[in-house]
Simulated assay, not measured.
Amino acid sequence: MRKLSKKSRITAAVAGVALVAVGGGAAYAYWTTTGSGSGSATNSAGGGTVTLHATFAGGLAPGNQVPVAYTADNATTSGTVVGALSANVTTNVAGCLPAWFEVTAVTTNTLVAANTTGTSVGSGTLKFNDSGTVNQDACKSAIVTVNVASQ
């Protein structure tokens, strides 16, 4: 066997150290570790606000009544439930008293899907009560408005 020169021994030693370093690095690549992290996103604002509508035929006279259809529009990105409805009457003529009118609103909890219009949410009646003792001519050609809200 031949003896290695000083230069060859240094080269062999450096190569050995390099192999150990590379081998150690490869072994490190297979070690396990721990860690943590998180992610987040904002949910929809939920429910949102729906627009309610009351639709009924015109031409009421004292003692008559007409059916009322209640619908809802939902422009939000999530569905919402319309609960119990409440309704009242206003008129555009001071002498045409809202107290002469009676409006009902019957509903159950109704799902109004996201981005929909005209979803039926209830029904009722609008009655023009005949006072029997007071002249109700002020209501001739008056505009009667049914205002509706949900709880």
Score class of each variant (00 low, 15 high):
116 T>A: 06
19 L>E: 02
31 W>C: 05
37 G>L: 02
95 G>F: 05
123 S>N: 13
3 K>C: 01
36 S>C: 01
63 G>A: 02
51 T>I: 07
139 C>Q: 05
22 V>K: 04
60 L>V: 09
128 F>K: 09
11 T>I: 11
14 V>P: 00
30 Y>N: 15
126 L>N: 10
3 K>W: 01
104 T>S: 15
64 N>F: 02
9 R>G: 02
143 I>R: 12
72 A>E: 09
40 S>P: 02
57 A>T: 13
122 G>I: 00
103 V>A: 10
47 G>H: 07
85 L>D: 06
66 V>P: 00
109 N>K: 08
89 V>L: 09
102 E>D: 14
70 Y>I: 00
5 S>L: 02
52 L>M: 04
39 G>V: 14
127 K>E: 14
33 T>S: 14
83 G>N: 12
107 T>K: 12
95 G>C: 10
110 T>F: 03
127 K>V: 07
57 A>M: 02
79 G>I: 02
137 D>V: 08
35 G>T: 05
76 T>G: 15
28 Y>H: 07
89 V>P: 12
146 V>H: 12
82 V>I: 15
102 E>A: 14
134 V>L: 08
17 V>K: 01
38 S>D: 03
26 A>P: 01
79 G>N: 10
44 S>Y: 06
129 N>H: 09
123 S>Y: 02
54 A>N: 03
85 L>Y: 08
75 A>G: 10
64 N>D: 11
104 T>A: 10
89 V>R: 03
55 T>D: 15
41 A>F: 13
55 T>G: 11
26 A>V: 15
5 S>K: 01
115 N>H: 14
72 A>S: 03
49 T>C: 03
33 T>G: 15
81 V>C: 11
123 S>C: 02
73 D>N: 13
108 T>W: 07
148 V>R: 01
128 F>E: 08
1 M>P: 13
108 T>N: 13
98 P>V: 04
118 G>Y: 01
90 T>F: 12
110 T>K: 05
126 L>K: 03
30 Y>P: 06
77 T>H: 11
62 P>F: 10
75 A>N: 11
129 N>D: 15
120 S>F: 04
107 T>Y: 03
56 F>V: 01
